[in-house]
């Protein structure tokens, strides 16, 4: 009897230690590990500038970037710029994603329309979206319209391709289940096609949103009096690298928050999926 007992008491602490170690590296521990490198680099740069090894004129230390961010936020200026950028991305995303879903759904379900439209759209897709900038400025001036149009164009194509592809690849076998139960075309669309294309559509929307932020920078670089992109241009013209970096950090935060909001708002719709999505 004593043999197995001894073995058990020997094994127990080892096992506890290994679970403790994996708990440390799991969840919060892993997140901290990811922060280690940027924090180390930032701290090293801060010390280098503070001790006079570097001037920090072109690459300001974290404390000066933080101060720039703080003063922008405290004066309320930052929020004006963030709001301007968000409104542009929001409008452009709404128009681009709406049109992308509409055209994607139409061309995927109606073959004649696909033969008519898809070649032209694919040709337009091959044009780098920034190539439209001069034309849009000629057509729409330099105010909000060309910016929103550029973002909408950037968002449109990934959403269009994603939605059309999702509809085209709906499992024929599931459609047959709908046919066996004699669903009307409308019920088939609502009860089988729509849920089946939802995950791929949401992925396409996420890609579209990411591109929306890409194009809002381009749009604001081409001339704006407010917006995070304007902060970038302003920082370049008046040689304020701390402001440029503050704007870049704001872009990262706002973009990540928008993406997280999109995922959080839509995740109840695809709760049924296998968990791969959670790791994205």
């Amino acid at each position: 009897m004593s043999g197995p007992t001894v073995l058990l008491t020997d094994a127990a602490p080892a096992k506890a230690a290994s679970t403790r170690r994996s708990a440390l590296l799991g969840g919060g521990g892993r997140a901290l590990l990811g922060l280690l490198l940027p924090l180390l680099l930032a701290g090293a740069w801060e010390i280098a500038v503070a001790s006079g090894f570097a001037t920090g004129r072109l690459l300001p230390p974290p404390s000066r970037i933080g101060a720039a961010l703080w003063s922008l936020a405290a004066s309320g200026e930052l929020w004006t710029h963030v709001a301007a950028t968000l409104i542009r991305v929001g409008l452009g995303f709404a128009f681009g994603a709406g049109a992308g879903i509409l055209f994607g759904a139409l061309t995927a379900t109606l073959p004649p329309l696909r033969w008519l439209l898809d070649p032209s759209l694919q040709a337009l897709r091959a044009v780098p979206s920034l190539a439209w900038v001069p034309l849009f400025i000629l057509w729409f001036g330099i105010l909000e319209t060309p910016k929103v149009a550029l973002i909408a164009v950037g968002v449109f194509f990934p959403v269009y391709v994603g939605v059309a592809g999702a509809i085209a690849s709906v499992d024929r076998k599931l459609v047959e289940v709908g046919r066996i139960f004699r669903l009307s075309p409308l019920a088939l669309a609502r009860r089988i096609l729509l849920p089946a294309v939802l995950p791929a559509t949401l992925t396409a929307l996420r890609t579209g949103l990411g591109l929306g932020f890409l194009f809002v920078v381009a749009a604001e670089l081409m001339g704006a009096s407010e917006g995070l992109g304007y902060l970038l241009v302003d920082g370049q013209q008046f040689s304020k690298p701390d402001q440029i970096l503050a704007a870049i950090i704001s872009f990262a935060v706002v973009g990540k928050l928008a993406d997280t909001a999109l995922v959080t708002l839509t995740s109840p719709l695809v709760r049924w999926q296998d968990t791969a999505r959670e790791t994205l």
Binding site: K173, L174, V177, I180, R182, P195, A196, L198, W272
Partner: peptide
Amino acid sequence: TGPHPGVGLVFQEPRLLPWL
């Protein structure tokens, strides 16, 4: 002449709808 209310079919694969 088409899917009929009196006829049911069980496929080779379960073909359950994953979102239900």
